[in-house]
Write a protein that binds this DNA or RNA. Structure first.
Lengths: 222, 222
DNA sequence: AATAATATTTAGATTTGCCTAAAAATAAAA
DNA sequence: TTTTATTTTTAGGCAAATCTAAATATTATT
């Protein structure tokens, strides 16, 4: 029932990197945790033995349902502390993360439940990320149409209003997927088209109709 | 500048056991930290190398001035968190210690200074123990005459108003020293004499005059 | 499909903090 | 002041979490 700080950090990292269906690679984890792949392999074996992750050699890993539960409870602690630091101790939104990284490993359940109540059961942390409740449920952030964003804003693609084959084909060609982070470069008032940018490719234009169809959620600055 | 949780716990334990002039024995530390004497020896060598303690084999140890500074800052963190837990999160006074043991190792200076301000710079924790300020200074708890205590109360002997040879001889005979914990058993209204008790001896009576002369400070329940 | 490049795992060490068992020093008792 | 008892230290090991270097799988390229 009680895990080391290191174990918790691995679980958190896997949670962060894990995208629907896909497995998390050893290398990606090593990068995320600023450690060597060999160390990752060692720890994955241990976490597998503790039934927190699904893992088979060379196949990467995923959180088990128990692992996900743990991840959510760590995220909960982290974000509640971030909220506390920003709201009660006047920390700036970009100073809270580092301190919360330490506070999140204090494991008393009673502490977290009472802190939550003291803070008035907040649902989003200072970065706008949702805070899981005590059962692990999270309030999904509001989905908005991509067309409503303004230049310089960033958002994560989260859904589509029209899932026709033509639409999917278009998105596939542009390499836009669920989870892709999109940055708005310019908005052309003439036809409401947008110049957008996605990681590892050059900016391109999408039409108003397309931008009407893509649902996104705001992404905090990084 | 940054110490492990284990190192901090050793420093705290030495601080707790250290009495003026005297050295802290390896065995006493092993008992306090619920570990084996051999482990203590190992760690004392490391703490000596880091100049936190004065130590020579078979002679016990003491905190260096740097060690004392660290100890005070750990005590400060611990007591501020205890105050927070009791005052803001409605923890009972006897529930705060365990959680504070974990929180005290979160090392951000900024966190502690802001927490202190948020709490209104409290000077005593929920057990009545003084909270060192950011420079390590502590407000001494008020000294009161032993005669003012009531049955069942406990206090630590902290000073004398009259330091005549006769008085000192009397106290020596009764084995009452600075630091001795005294419990009041009964108060005889007739002559204001007190039946008191000190550790490892049977209860005895002291006169009103004597009790007028002994200065004590309240001791939190244990 | 064979080869080159990349990703992952194994093997063997290291550090931290702890342990047990035996040796050495100190303190207490005869 | 010997002898006995107690305290402390040394020596050698163990588990956790990490590392480097070498071996092995997998993936990509020709």
């Amino acid at each position: 029932m009680n895990y080391t700080i290191s174990e918790e950090n691995y679980i958190k990292a896997i949670f962060r990197l894990q995208r629907a269906g896909k497995t998390v690679s050893t290398n990606a984890l090593a990068l995320e945790l600023e450690t060597k792949p060999a160390s990752i392999t060692d720890m994955l074996k241990k976490l597998k033995a503790k039934k927190l992750v699904l893992y088979s050699p060379y196949q990467g890993c995923r959180l088990s349902s128990e692992g996900s539960k743990l991840a959510l409870s760590i995220v909960r602690r982290h974000r509640l502390w971030e909220y506390f630091l920003a709201e009660k101790l006047q920390f700036k939104w970009d100073e809270v993360h580092e301190v919360a990284e330490e506070l999140e490993h204090v494991s008393s359940k009673q502490l977290i439940e009472r802190l939550d109540a003291f803070l008035g059961f907040p649902r989003f942390d200072p970065h706008g990320d949702p805070i899981p409740d005590s059962t692990g449920k999270i309030t999904m952030p509001e989905l908005v149409k991509l067309i409503t964003l303004r230049p310089c804003e960033r958002a994560r693609v989260s859904g589509l209003t029209d899932q026709s084959a033509d639409m999917l084909k278009l998105l596939k060609q542009r390499k836009i997927n669920i989870g892709t982070i999109v940055t708005i470069n310019k908005k052309f008032e003439f036809d409401q088209s947008l110049e957008i940018e996605i990681p590892e490719s050059i900016p391109f234009i999408i039409s108003e109709q397309t931008a009407q169809n893509i649902l996104v959620q705001y992404e905090p600055e990084s």
